[in-house]
């Protein structure tokens, strides 16, 4: 490849912030695009993976789909999936959103499945013995107890999707990746500015879902040891 490489000077980081200020319009529109692509992908992933994972966990079946299948999807190289998607879906946002859904939903699926499937069978037995119907067991016992782990999965997936959306720049998917792959136009300071914006978005996504996770964790569970861990971004993070 023939890249015009910028040299790095000590004040390039300062320049990056100047770049943001000077190109506020560009930064704003790319950040918005980035959020739209990520938001669409997260929403679709949630709509597919949560009902499927919760349902499979509820009936205690399909561990092959929810765990083995999921692990295979998680092993896929992001760029390769985006490239294949481009070939079949053509250039643009659809392809990127599709790839992000494929790459991001397995974590949600696995966590939702494990969360519901792993609930102490004694609790379910007690609930059945008291005369709860399957739907009542799902809504009153399984879901409340599974929510913290389900949200942990959503949180990991959200951070992953926001960061991976950057690769969309390579295939014309828009977003902050457009700045990061265009060093020729924006120079290293632009690349750094784009990266800082991606990092900020990832952090924001992490924080939002961490707060939600905290909010949905029943107080009785928080009193049990180790059922809720403090926010530590490095723990679940996946490099993209």
């Amino acid at each position: 490849m023939t890249l015009a490489y910028d040299s790095f000077r000590p004040y390039t980081f300062v320049d990056a912030f100047k770049f943001m200020a000077d190109n506020a319009g560009l930064m704003w529109s790319k950040t918005t695009e980035h959020l739209i692509v990520s938001g669409e992908a997260i929403s679709i992933a949630l709509l597919i993976a949560i009902p499927l994972g919760v349902w499979l966990g509820h009936i205690h079946r399909g561990s092959f789909v929810a765990i083995t299948g999921s692990n295979i999807l998680r092993a896929l190289p992001s760029l390769a999936v985006i490239a294949i998607g481009l070939g079949y879906l053509g250039i643009g946002r659809t392809n990127v959103v599709f790839a992000l859904v494929v790459l991001g939903s397995p974590v949600i699926l696995t966590n939702a499945y494990v969360a519901v499937d792993g609930i102490d069978p004694d609790l379910i037995e007690a609930a059945r013995g008291m005369g709860m119907r399957p739907l009542e067991i799902l809504l009153k016992v399984e879901l409340p107890l599974a929510l913290p782990l389900i949200f942990a999965g959503i949180r990991t997936a959200a951070v992953f999707i926001v960061a991976t959306a950057t690769l969309g720049g390579v295939v014309g998917g828009g977003g902050l990746g457009d700045i990061i792959v265009n060093q020729a136009s924006y120079f290293l300071r632009g690349v750094i500015a784009g990266s800082i914006a991606v990092a900020a978005l990832s952090f924001a996504a992490d924080f939002v879902f961490w707060s939600l996770q905290r909010a949905v964790t029943p107080r009785g569970l928080r009193l049990q040891a180790r059922s809720f861990e403090p926010m530590s971004p490095a723990d679940d993070a996946i490099a993209v």
Binding site: D122, L123, E125, A126, R128, G129, G131, M132, L145, G220
Partner: peptide, 30 residues
């Protein structure tokens, strides 16, 4: 079967208290 179970008290060794409900919430389940 549901009516039958609601009319029978059931206690198991593992107790199976719902950890997300208070004592009152647990007792009030049925």
């Amino acid at each position: 079967v549901i009516e039958l179970r609601r009319g029978i008290g059931y206690v198991i060794q593992q107790i199976g208290l719902f950890p997300h409900m208070t004592v009152a919430g647990n007792v009030a389940t049925v």
